[in-house]
Nucleic acid binder design. Structure first.
Lengths: 360, 360
DNA sequence: CAGTACAACTAGTACGTACAAGTGCCACGT
DNA sequence: ACGTGGCACTTGTACGTACTAGTTGTACTG
């Protein structure tokens, strides 16, 4: 009694400390004097046990230090009700989505199992592990691989991609209407009086191509095709810093820059400030993501907001639709971003424009 | 054939799409014409199968889309060889440790299972989930709870805490010799000629108290007790920004500030720069963590470095010692930090000191 | 008073794998 | 010819839980 699975012998000196077996439902049941099945009922909060018995079961479990074995539950249960999440820890906005996934999953009756993509472990391997753990569906955030082989064959697993790098068939996608976000940024700057508006892109990173196209389209829409300048970047601070140095080396700065994301904008802003350029007086800067970074008082970045909570909720819902409602057709969910205007944008300084006109 | 667990009927319209059962080892075995146990041998890379059979097993598995079931493995195996990791995604240094844990765990023959602590899920719950998944030990990074109840009782689970907030008994601890780090920072600044060196602390955050004490001790050691100034903070950018505003409001700035961590230093630096204060000419700034932030070209922060890889390796090793070598006594592992000198520190400007002397 | 309905429980089995303990079979040495 | 050993494989069972299908006992109905 009170010695579940133990041999009764204490770990003798010299022998490697033997881990005692963890107590099981049967141990709890034996202690209360009921069957294992009844303990199972109690822990699942199912009807069929008297209030008094429930209390005694919980008390015995407490005394024994019993803890349900997830592996066994997973194995036995008809449904695992687990969603795998494949994510990166380095992009703040992605972290925000992960955090928002927890309440969203709970709301739909699912549990999350995380797997980070780090340098030493490819996306594929991380995905394999998630599937091995019986994820019913997998939500990826900013992934670059295509999962064609998973959505095909006997055991197709639904995949929902949030802000994927590439477009793929057979998966649901939750993404932002990037062009609308960029267009709002351009509109905002043009309304302030800007004409020389440059863009730092994200290279091959997720959504970068669309933002780049959106920038070009919005500029043309305002008749500013001649002012289109796309500087290559990669969503990192250093790429923003590099562009800043390039711009400083030239005689003429643009009056405004739209960065591919907030990190890039941060690098741009920091480097310009260090060089004595005033923001927004000399140059206005717009970021993208509206991350925590943008909201810091000393950065205070006008930025295109994508609601992390909304993306998370819709991704979970998309998975739930496939799993619980039998949807089989792909969905492409597009969210409209909004512009969070802060202190990094303002009217351009009065100065001579490249074509010689003097703007008021 | 080729329809493992399937009923042969395609998902009819109107009925919710039924997920086909995933293939098992038995399905693979049947296809090859061998026993399930042999397939198990092959997948575990154990001796006892002919090279030809191995090939056929792998091929059949490939054709069926077979994937080992982790839940079943976990349930059946004597040892799970899994280490739980409890971490925060918001502190860059912690993220670095998590990434370094992967290779360290692999080296010792362990697998990692992550669980993030987010606002909506307490540390306790995250820990429960890890234990439910049969983690043999748990490594926490910057956790605040005490796990007394886990290291006691029938099924004690080894806990290794990296940079814990509070000291606890019954657990292994991997931490930095905080006072040495701070002392190096103070020594460095004093050597540059600074005397008015302030400190922004981390409040109740991990290691903050020790850094605070280390600052005071180092200052006294240099006979600068009169210049001791501790400003309250909490390791966030905004706390650094707030202190910056406080300092600016006073007539007299210190010539140097040691921030509790890099994020705090970032807030301090950004706010001072915005106010026209030059760094390091007017004020020198030292951070703590040597995170990626500190290394950015436009931040370029002198910072106390704690090797994430080293912490990770030692934490895994501590867990392995308990699990594989039967160690039962607690270990307190203390790492020596080093100072990464960058551009945010320099000699103080010649100016009158608070006591009226004129320093050269 | 028989019959029924319900609450409170138990028995048995299946989930997919790992591991211990076999079972043939063939080559080899004496 | 007979053991002997090793390889290649199989059989059987256990892991801890969930779920289906019972089995009691009690109260209630007509």
């Amino acid at each position: 009694m009170g010695d579940p699975g133990g041999t009764g012998s204490s770990d003798g000196p010299g022998t490697p400390a033997r881990r005692l077996k963890r107590p099981t439902m049967s141990d709890v049941a034996a202690r209360v004097g009921v069957s294992q099945a009844l303990v199972s009922l109690v822990f699942r909060n199912q009807p069929g046990a008297s209030p008094d018995t429930r209390r005694r079961v919980f008390q015995a479990a407490e005394e024994l230090g019993y803890r349900p074995d997830t592996a066994a539950q997973l194995l036995r249960r008809t449904r695992s009700r687990q969603l795998g999440v494949l994510f990166t820890m380095r992009q703040p906005h992605d972290v925000g989505i992960v955090e928002a996934l927890y309440p969203a999953a709970r709301k739909h009756g699912y549990t999350l199992v995380l797997n980070a993509m780090v340098a030493t472990r490819g996306e594929r391997q991380a995905m394999e592990e998630l599937l091995g753990l019986r994820s019913e569906a997998v939500i990826t955030i900013g992934a670059t691989s295509s999962w064609q082989h998973l959505t095909t064959g006997a055991t197709r697993t639904p995949i929902v991609e949030i802000n994927p790098r590439t477009r793929a068939a057979g998966v649901d996608v939750v993404r932002t209407a990037e062009h609308k976000g960029i267009r709002q940024a351009v509109d905002h700057l043009v309304a302030l009086g800007h004409r020389a508006i440059a863009h730092i892109d994200g290279g091959t990173m997720p959504a970068a191509a669309e933002r780049r196209r959106g920038y070009r389209a919005a500029m043309r829409r305002h008749g500013l095709a001649d002012h289109i300048r796309v500087h290559p970047g990669d969503y990192t601070e250093e790429s923003g810093a590099r562009v800043a140095r390039d711009l400083l080396a030239r005689a003429q700065l643009p009056t405004a820059v739209i960065a591919g994301n907030d990190r890039c904008a941060h690098g741009l802003l920091g480097t310009l400030l260090r060089a004595g350029v005033r923001v927004p007086e000399d140059v206005s800067i717009v970021g993208y993501d509206d991350s925590q970074l943008a909201r810091l008082s000393f950065i205070d970045l006008t930025s295109v907001r994508q609601e992390a909570a909304e993306s998370a909720e819709l991704a979970v819902r998309a998975a739930a639709e496939r799993l619980d409602e039998g949807r089989t057709a792909d969905r492409d969910i597009v969210l409209d971003p909004t512009l969070a205007v802060r202190g990094s944008t303002g009217p351009p300084r009065t100065r001579s424009t490249p074509d010689g006109d003097l703007l008021r």
